[in-house]
């Protein structure tokens, strides 16, 4: 039996007295693309951030490729090397060029030589369509370009799975497509992806599974055709109706 790419067991998370996750059980298999949807405040970003321990679960266990990352003895830095993460606000390092952004962790964490890191960085920037922007600072790039550099930065570490935390939510509408098509390409290449998103079209077409969360619990979990196309729960229906028909 091969290990799950991600396994969450009875995950609870409190922020002070506020319970954000109320017992999540979930698995992601290698090569799967799983989209997490749900209203804001439903805990979906927190769930994602628990996978690489940017948030520490209050209760429960997280396994990544069979390794329990919530075990205090585990080297979390080593685990994170294998988990790429893309943030809503891009979080590029503003004092470094696009190329340096993609090189720095390769050099400092993977101890790759400068030359090797640069080759890998250029390849990945090329792959996400910003090969011509290697020497630009993040401030000189559009949001869509920044987010693609951020994806390249994560990919350059050769991760075995990728987390996307609302990757297109901070983008101007006309730039969303560029980022989504990069993500689609990744999915086609067989990358394991856990994506928190509001892009229903993307979820429907690319995801193997869609998870609908509300109020800190998983309400529905299934193939897109079911969860988005034929939701069984009233809460899911209400949410989807609001998202797909914003003007009522």
């Amino acid at each position: 039996m091969t290990a799950h790419a991600i396994e969450l067991r009875d995950l609870h998370k409190y922020f002070g007295g506020n319970q954000v996750l109320k017992g999540i059980d979930m698995t992601v298999e290698p090569g799967q693309v799983v989209c997490v949807i749900g209203p804001s405040g439903s805990g979906k970003s927190t769930l994602l951030r628990c996978v690489n321990l940017l948030e520490t679960p209050t209760v429960g266990k997280v396994f990544v490729e069979g390794v329990e990352v919530t075990d205090p003895d585990v080297d979390i830095d080593a685990v994170r090397r294998r988990i790429g993460m893309v943030f809503q606000q891009f979080n590029l390092f503003p004092h470094m060029t696009a190329l340096q952004n993609v090189m720095i962790a390769q050099q400092r964490v993977l101890k790759r030589s400068r030359k090797e890191a640069e080759v890998v960085a250029r390849d990945n920037l090329e792959k996400v369509g910003v090969g011509a922007k290697c020497d630009a600072l993040p401030g000189q790039l559009s949001g869509g370009q920044q987010q693609r550099v951020a994806i390249a930065r994560a990919l350059a570490m050769s991760p075995s799975l990728m987390l996307f935390d609302e990757p297109t939510s901070a983008l101007d509408p006309e730039l969303v497509g560029d980022v989504l098509s990069v993500m689609r390409k990744l999915a086609e290449e067989g990358m394991t992806m856990l994506v928190v998103t509001h892009e229903m079209g993307f979820a429907r077409e690319v995801a193997d599974r869609v998870v609908f969360m509300d109020g800190g619990v998983v309400v529905e979990d299934g193939v897109p055709a079911q969860v988005i196309g034929d939701p069984q729960q009233e809460r899911t229906r209400t949410f989807l109706h609001r998202v797909l028909h914003p003007e009522g």
């Binding site: 940017l54 790429g84 943030f87 400092r108």
Partner: peptide
């Protein structure tokens, strides 16, 4: 911003 540290940590930096 905190996101800077988070991005660095998510890349495996101590």
């Amino acid at each position: 911003p905190r996101g800077q540290t988070e991005a660095a940590r998510s890349l495996g930096m101590s």
